[in-house]
Design a binder for these strands. Structure first.
Lengths: 149, 149
DNA sequence: TCAGATTATAAGGTAACCTGACGAAAGAGT
DNA sequence: ACTCTTTCGTCAGGTTACCTTATAATCTGA
C-alpha cells in the first residue's frame, strides 16, 4: 500500500513534495551526523538553513524560522554551550545581542551547505538538467504566487 | 531576506518543496479547524492521509506513518474518546484490534479528502494544466527513483 | 508442545515547541 | 526632560508528539 495520498489522476503533488523534501532532509541530517556532529539535533541543523547564522539577532532568526523567540533562545543556548557560536552585545542596541559563529560553527555551516548542494545535484541527476530546470521554475512560481496570497 | 535556502542557480528545490508542502498542509489543517473540528490536532489529521483509517490495524498504521506503535495508540485513543472511531477485536487474530470509523469519523475523513483535493486544484490553477502535469510527472519519477535507493 | 515472534498496551522519559511575564533599553510624543 | 509604548532577550512553567522499555495475551512454526 502506498504512503502517498491519491487524487483521481494520481498522487497529490502536495504529498509527493512532502516525500521528496523528507528524503532530502533525512539525507542531509544523516550527513551531518556522519560528519561527526553528534551533539546537535534536527532542530539545531534547521537553524542553518538560512544564508548564515553569523551576525544575526535572535528575534530576526525567530521570525524567519517561524518559531517563538524562546525556542530560538533555547536552541542558541545549546549551540553556544557546545562551542558553535557566541552571543555578543549589539553595540547599536543595548537590548539586543548578535550571534557570532565560532570556527567550529563555520565548519558546521559549511558542512550543511555542502550536503544541501549534494542533494540538489543528486535530484538534478535523477531528473536530467532540462526537467530539473522546469521543476525548479514551476516550484519558484508556486512559491512566489502562494506567498502573495 | 528570503526564507528559502539558495544554491548557485537559485533556491534549492528541496527548500521550495518544503515551502509549498507547508503551505498546503497549513491550508488543509486550517480547513479542518474551520469545519468545526476543534478537538483534534495536526497529528490526528495526519493519520487520515492514507486511503482510509477504516478496517486498519494499529501496527499497520504505525508502519505507514513511520512512527511508533505507542504514538499511534495514543492518537487512536484520543480519536476514540472523541467519537471518531472504535477499536474492535480482530476475529482472525486474538491479539489484534481493528479500527472502525464511526459516522463522525467518516465525515472527518471526507472533509480532509475534500480539502486536499481543493488544494490540489488550487495549485493546478496557479500553474496551468500543462505545467501542473509536468510537475506531477517529475515528482512521481523522483519518488519512484528515491524509494528504490 | 513449547520457544519465539507479534499484538496492544502501560509506564516513564524527552525534544521541541508554546504562553505569559519580566527588566532593561530604545523610540515617540508632549 | 519626562512619560508612554514598544521591543529585546530571558525566565518559569506547561503541552504536544513523539520515544524506549517492559509486559500480558495470543499466534506461529519446528
Amino acid at each position: 500500500m502506498s504512503t502517498i495520498g491519491t487524487s483521481v489522476n494520481g498522487p497529490y503533488v502536495g504529498a509527493l513534495m512532502r516525500f521528496v523534501w523528507q528524503w532530502v532532509w533525512e539525507r542531509n541530517y544523516a550527513g551531518v551526523a556522519d560528519a561527526g556532529y553528534n551533539d546537535i539535533t534536527r532542530a539545531h541543523v534547521s537553524m542553518f538553513r538560512y544564508p548564515t547564522l553569523d551576525w544575526r539577532r535572535p528575534t530576526e532568526i525567530a521570525e524567519q524560522l517561524q518559531i517563538s523567540k524562546q525556542s530560538v533562545h533555547e536552541l542558541l543556548t545549546h549551540l553556544e554551550q557546545h562551542g558553535y557560536l557566541t552571543r555578543e552585545p549589539d553595540p547599536s542596541d543595548g537590548r539586543a545581542r548578535i550571534v557570532r559563529l565560532t570556527t567550529r560553527g563555520h565548519e558546521l555551516e559549511q558542512t550543511i551547505n555542502q550536503l544541501a548542494h549534494a542533494s540538489e545535484l543528486h535530484i538534478a541527476d535523477l531528473l536530467g538538467d532540462r526537467r530539473f530546470a522546469q521543476l525548479r521554475l514551476s516550484l519558484e512560481e508556486l512559491r512566489s504566487k502562494l506567498s502573495d496570497e
